[in-house]
């Protein structure tokens, strides 16, 4: 009987304090939560049609900035590009032509977001293709992260209701392709 009492006493002595156990669990759960959040963000994939468009602020090359909240009620065409991106050049002229068609109506806004680029070369690119719609750098890659882009060029068309209406991965091949996508968003 007394032999059995000895280990019980020892076990009681060895038992960790509840605060220590709670702290250990807290650390483990905290680490798991951080890993889960990171995994969720990684596995999220790209944006989908019908999802609310993320809010963003675009600082413009020409000074000033545009906030997405100020564009509510308009169709917004957000084009991600870069001067080092050869496929971006394929659609640059068509995008500018489309902008010139919609600009007088005032119902559609085109925005160019320059991704991971150098300002000098970006400005040269805009001049080369005579792009006049608002353009600015993706400072801190915050906008591209919010849109969860996979590369450039990518174009997102946001409806008047703030929901994603159209997503183009890769370059537009024709002007009519751009017009069709924008007109569909305008009609909704």
């Amino acid at each position: 009987m007394s032999e059995q009492l000895e280990p019980t006493k020892d076990k009681a002595a060895r038992k960790a304090s509840p605060v220590g156990v709670a702290l250990a669990w807290l650390v483990v759960l905290g680490l798991l939560a951080v890993v889960a959040i990171q995994l969720r963000a990684t596995m999220q994939g790209g944006m989908g049609i019908g999802q609310p468009a993320p809010a963003f602020t675009l600082s413009l090359f020409d000074g000033g900035e545009i906030q997405s909240a100020d564009l509510a009620g308009k169709v917004v065409v957000v084009n991600f590009w870069a001067s080092w991106c050869a496929p971006c050049e394929e659609e640059a002229e068509e995008l500018q032509m489309a902008w010139e068609i919609y600009e007088p109506g005032g119902e559609v806004v085109f925005l160019g977001v320059d991704y991971a680029d150098t300002e000098t070369l970006a400005r040269a690119y805009l001049e080369r293709f005579q792009i006049t719609y608002p353009n600015g750098p993706d400072l801190g890659t915050r906008i591209s992260q919010a849109f969860r882009i996979r590369g450039v060029p990518e174009t997102y068309i946001i409806g008047r209701d703030g929901l994603m209406k159209y997503i183009k991965i890769g370059p537009f091949t024709t002007l009519s392709e751009i017009l069709a996508a924008v007109d569909r968003a305008l009609a909704e």
Partner: peptide, 8 residues
Amino acid sequence: FVLQYGDR
């Protein structure tokens, strides 16, 4: 570079 392209 951090300001332009983020912490990444």
